[in-house]
Simulated scan of single mutants.
Amino acid sequence: MILLGETHETTGYFPRGSFVLKKNDNELVSKWLTFKLTNEGCADSTIDKYRGYLSRLSDYLENDLVDTGTDDLVDFTGLHLHESGAAPSSRRAVVAAVKSFYKWATVNKLCLLNPAENLVYPKKRSLVPIAMSLKNSEKLLMQPDISTFKGLRDAAVLALFIGTGARLHGIINLNKRDLITFEYQGIDRLAVKLKEKGSKERIVPVPPEAALLLRAYLGHDELSLIDTALPNGDHVVFVNLKNNHVPSYEHRGEARRLGKRGIQQMIKDYSILAGVPESQAHAHAFRHLVGAELAEESATPFEMMAILGHAQEDTTAIYAQLALRKLTEVLDRANPLGKIETRVSPLVKEFKARGYL
């Protein structure tokens, strides 16, 4: 059974409900999803969403999926989903899945004609993103008590968001092998390999302030007592302090990874303490801050795409070749952490004066 109804950070609201694929449709959709997974390299999360969309369509149609016509698909992706309360951005994702399925079905001669060929995408509103202000990011970063293990972890997480513009899952998915040391102007610097949307990866330099907090967290005595080892020999970077979904003896490895809800609640709690508006109290507001600061410092579009991961497929090959040292120069110039006062700012200034950073 497929359950739909989560509020997704980029696609918006999708109405709640439970839908089951018809027997004939289930086998067909499974074959299509296998093709998407193995041939196109879609992420597991995308596969799950596509199965949900096609399950809802199967539930809506009287006939099997391959026996339907254009009119039914137009009604489903348009009026039906609209009356169900789906936002235009949510319906765009459904249209994309439906068009992809029927294109595959037509190529494989399961449909004589493609009934989804002329489906149109609903217009998506272009909203101006709300960025967290420098002042509010400063207030927020001052909230964690870095004399405690939890506070130091939280400060490192927040600093990475503010300093790199990482997406939420980029921080969640960090393992120790994703921490990269490289030389910049004769000094060892830190970069992180971010694994975010789908299976896309990018390497982003870490500002000195965030690097100091991250290294302090990684060197904390309490972390050394936690089993963060993964089956492949790697280690989780950011750990949770409790996990109610597993017994205590299994609270290790992947079960130790700090999750989406934990980070979202952390940002919300510190935002309340700092007096940060609710509209800025989310992980994406940090990305908008970094993007705004990059624009202020006249970063080129390719530089911004390389740092923030706003990649178009046809430009990936171009910007992915940008030198890490060049990105470090650009991000150091735009670095929000360098424009606010943090708990490690005096230490960063001292290290820079001595030539350590």
Rank of each mutant, 00 (worst) to 15 (best):
278 E>H: 14
285 A>V: 13
280 Q>P: 08
276 V>K: 10
284 H>A: 14
239 V>L: 05
241 L>I: 02
219 G>P: 02
270 Y>V: 06
246 V>Y: 00
273 L>Q: 12
245 H>K: 12
231 P>D: 04
222 E>G: 02
257 R>S: 08
232 N>W: 00
283 A>W: 04
257 R>I: 06
269 D>I: 04
239 V>F: 02
242 K>N: 00
208 P>N: 13
219 G>E: 03
263 I>G: 10
272 I>D: 15
219 G>F: 04
253 G>D: 07
217 Y>T: 06
254 E>F: 02
216 A>M: 10
226 I>F: 09
268 K>L: 12
242 K>G: 00
271 S>H: 12
263 I>F: 08
274 A>L: 09
219 G>R: 04
286 F>E: 06
258 L>V: 03
273 L>V: 10
217 Y>C: 07
226 I>W: 10
255 A>C: 09
280 Q>D: 10
287 R>W: 12
223 L>A: 09
216 A>F: 06
244 N>A: 06
235 H>C: 05
287 R>H: 11
275 G>Q: 10
212 L>G: 09
287 R>K: 09
214 L>H: 05
256 R>C: 03
235 H>G: 02
244 N>K: 13
245 H>E: 06
280 Q>W: 07
221 D>A: 11
223 L>Q: 12
238 F>L: 01
264 Q>C: 11
279 S>Y: 08
218 L>S: 02
231 P>M: 04
213 L>F: 12
